[in-house]
Design a binder for these strands. Sequence first.
DNA 1: TTGTAGGCGTTATCAG
DNA 2: CTGATAACGCCTACAA
Lengths: 330, 330
Amino acid sequence: MATIKDVAAHAGVSFKTVSRVINRHPHVTDAVRQKVLRAIEDLDYRPNIVARNMRTRKTEYIGLITDQIMTTPFSGAIIKGAQEAAWTSGIMLLTVNTDGQPELEAAAVNMLLERQVAGIAYATMFHKAVAPPAKLTDAPCILVDCFSASGELPAIVPDEMQGGYDATRHLLSRGHRRIAMINGKRGYPGTEGRLNGYRKALESADLAYDEALVRFGDWWQEDGYHHACCLMKLPDPPTAICCGNDRIAMGVFAAVHELGAAIPDDVAVIGFDNMEVIAAHLRPGLTTMALPYYEMGQRAIEYLTGDRCDDLQNGRRIELPCLLIQREST
Amino acid sequence: MATIKDVAAHAGVSFKTVSRVINRHPHVTDAVRQKVLRAIEDLDYRPNIVARNMRTRKTEYIGLITDQIMTTPFSGAIIKGAQEAAWTSGIMLLTVNTDGQPELEAAAVNMLLERQVAGIAYATMFHKAVAPPAKLTDAPCILVDCFSASGELPAIVPDEMQGGYDATRHLLSRGHRRIAMINGKRGYPGTEGRLNGYRKALESADLAYDEALVRFGDWWQEDGYHHACCLMKLPDPPTAICCGNDRIAMGVFAAVHELGAAIPDDVAVIGFDNMEVIAAHLRPGLTTMALPYYEMGQRAIEYLTGDRCDDLQNGRRIELPCLLIQREST
DNA sequence: TTGTAGGCGTTATCAG
DNA sequence: CTGATAACGCCTACAA
């Protein structure tokens, strides 16, 4: 493997000049530059980034610690967003999947720190409170799709409230006045935020909040099916159902079909997540709120590289909006 | 940030001794070791891996170049398998997603090479022939879920033939004698390999190959729906359908239900991919062949680290078996 | 515009 | 078993 000195010798200049050419230093004669570039070509020279990092005492690595994101069909977009933002800044991502095991997480943080990463992003597959390893703060860091219980770490999360609000407003705008909600499990930021948004939207339309129309389940198809059956058999059934996620919506579809009703004519359905395999392939296509996974990943890297001057001092968090994806179910 | 010298001073030993302790060198007195460990603790010292890599002229990085794996719901397991195998060996993965753009791929290879990676795995979201950047071979490398057209690069791929064979044998073992196949697009290794397996299985049961029962589509739900409708209306319809993937099977389910037939009683259905969102949530659950994504990722890293002495000289490739996941549709 | 000396934090070599 | 010295490939400072 050729080094900078080999190139210098080959080009008949000092190695410092080669260094300047490599790093696009302005003050180099064009003639010399050409000579050097030629030598680089000839020797198939590649700068040794390890040596550079050693000398400059910094790297172009950013660590990305994830729980089970790798295998989930939706939140994987966090990685992609991070990936592409990193690429744009000439940064490489060191990804570690920990399955949420605390010892593994601590070990991962340690490995990243030893490798002198410029920052660490800690991401979870769904929006929740977390207690990341203490050493995380030894590097610039940011939480993605999660937040520290104590709230002192910078975080990027989805704006669940806005999501629930916009979903409900969308149904309202379609003329619905009796709108049910089949939500996820209580206590989750997603569940509670979307519920609040739903309530706010109803309020904005001067509609009363009807407890009978609001159900909570466990995010699964079965829950959607079950609750939809109950709701549709109500004396005054809803004309629209806002679901906590697309799986729930999938169950709602099954229930509605089974009862011989039609979507969206008899009952409109909206989901959350925009899981392509579900939403785009149900018949009719499922209108749903897309969570800003890609954007969260992207923004996290931009924050760590300083490409974007986000003010995240003392517990401020960035809330990124959910986006309405309109298909045929509403 | 404390260095090895700070630790040495604090412990009252030479920095070389500290180095020995860190690297678990055998010839160190226990007393000295304790002193050093204490100093490390006191100073919150962390070895600088960049400096180590510089000196030893090698790193514990392996590059993982993917096309669009990050966002696909199934092949993401390649990354997970690679991830976990890497972790086991104390290796960190440098992941780059290129969306299959050749210039990006070449740039990625270059970045990885500059960073002195110990090896590069090049993975695709589905099994196909590829032409990776020429420089890829400047490092130890392996293709995952793909192979070089010329066939000279080491590769790990699914055993499509065995997959098709086992899927068909499974249907045969259930008593079916009239088995249809709704396959993917012609020319793909998956399509052709599974077709061959299907034929071989029929042969093994002394059944004639009936062209009327074999259809090709484009891997989508719609194709499954369409072809299933045709097949079921045949004068002598199949009692079982082997599908090129789970999406196709999903379409088959829709068609069968629409025609008032029952799965698996009137017609058995088997898929390919084991896409959790589809296979586990269809009713009845979809029996399917799981592709060895996780294992391919894992094996790729094991190959690159030498943890496993695979013989991949001159174009030999590893073919990993597909696994039958039995649910209720057969 | 170009070149020289020195050092980044480690590990390898070789003495003690 | 322990320690001094050199080197890894590059960049920063300063000098020419």
